[in-house]
C-alpha cells in the first residue's frame, strides 16, 4: 500500500536545479535509503516531503491526499504524520529530555501532561535512555541526543520517519547506538526514508536504495543488487569512495 507518492517534483535555488523531476512511491513498512554525492538533492527531497522546503512544481501525496500547494492548518497536520530527525539533533536546550518529547503532544492538546510523560518514558526505554528522562540536553552525548531526537519524533505517532543524515555529525563511536535504534524501528515496521552513507546499515536495513545524482533519481534498487552489482561506473566509483573513507 502506498503511503507516499511523489510525482515529478522539481526545485531550484536560483539557477541551481536541486531536484529535477523526481518521482517516487513509498509503500507502508518500507525502509528507503537515499545515497548520492553531496549536493545531489537528497536532503532537499526529504525536506520537501514535510514541506520545510516548498517544491517549485510537481505534487506529493500522503495516503492519497495532496500536501503540496497552499494551506496553513493542513500543513501542520501533514507534519504531525511525518517525524523528522536532523543531522544536528536540534534538541530544545531550554527543556529537559521529557520536556523535549512531550512538548508537541501536550501543547497541541493531544495528550495530558502526565500521560505524555509516561509515553516519553516508554519511548526513552525503546531508545535505551529511560534514566535520562529528567536530564538536560547539554548533559547528553551526541549519540544520546540523537536517540532523544528520535524519541521526540516518535511521540507524535508518525506514519513515516524521515532521517536527514542522522549520524554524520556524530563521533564514530556513537554512530552504532543510533543505527541500532533505527534498525529496531525499521524491523518494527516503521516506514522510513533515510539519507545516510552508512553502507553496512543500508545493506542490512533498507528495502530499497535510491541513488541520487545532480537532482535526478538515478537508480532505485534493493541494496544487495546495488552493492553487489552496481549498474554503472558512476555508482561504482561513488560506493568505492564511501567505502574507502570507512576503511581509512
Amino acid at each position: 500500500m502506498k503511503v507516499i507518492e511523489v510525482r515529478s517534483i522539481s526545485k531550484a535555488y536560483g539557477d541551481n536545479l536541486v531536484l529535477d523531476e523526481v518521482s517516487l512511491e513509498v509503500r507502508r513498512g518500507e525502509t528507503i535509503a537515499i545515497i548520492g554525492p553531496s549536493g545531489s538533492g537528497k536532503s532537499t527531497l526529504l525536506r520537501c516531503m514535510n514541506r520545510l522546503e516548498e517544491v517549485d512544481s510537481g505534487e506529493i501525496f500522503i495516503d492519497g491526499e495532496p500536501i503540496t500547494g497552499r494551506g496553513g492548518r493542513r500543513l501542520d497536520q501533514v507534519r504531525r504524520r511525518m517525524g523528522m530527525v536532523f543531522q544536528q539533533f536540534n534538541l530544545f536546550p531550554h527543556l529537559t529530555v521529557a520536556g523535549n518529547i512531550t512538548l508537541a503532544p501536550v501543547s497541541l492538546r493531544m495528550m495530558r501532561p502526565d500521560a505524555a510523560r509516561e509515553r516519553a518514558r516508554e519511548l526513552l526505554r525503546q531508545v535505551g535512555l529511560e534514566e535520562k528522562l529528567d536530564s538536560w540536553p547539554d548533559q547528553l552525548s551526541g549519540g544520546q541526543k540523537q536517540r532523544v531526537a528520535i524519541a521526540r519524533a516518535l511521540a507524535m505517532d508518525p506514519e513515516v520517519m524521515l532521517f536527514d543524515e542522522p549520524t554524520s555529525a556524530l563521533d564514530p563511536e556513537m554512530v552504532g547506538e543510533v543505527l541500532r535504534v533505527m534498525r529496531d524501528l525499521s524491523e518494527a515496521g516503521m516506514t522510513m526514508l533515510v539519507v545516510s552513507h552508512e553502507l553496512a546499515f543500508v545493506r542490512q536495513a533498507a528495502t530499497r536504495v535510491l541513488f541520487m545524482d545532480a537532482g535526478k533519481l538515478a537508480v532505485d534498487l534493493p541494496p544487495a543488487e546495488l552493492f553487489d552489482n552496481p549498474p554503472n561506473q558512476r555508482i561504482r566509483d561513488f560506493l568505492d569512495a564511501v567505502q574507502q573513507k570507512d576503511a581509512v
Partner: peptide, 16 residues
C-alpha cells in the same frame, strides 16, 4: 534556525 525547523517538523504552528 534548526530550533524552529525542529518545532515545525513536529507539527507545531508557527506562533506556537
Amino acid at each position: 534556525g534548526g530550533q524552529m525547523e525542529a518545532a515545525r517538523s513536529l507539527g507545531l504552528p508557527y506562533l506556537l
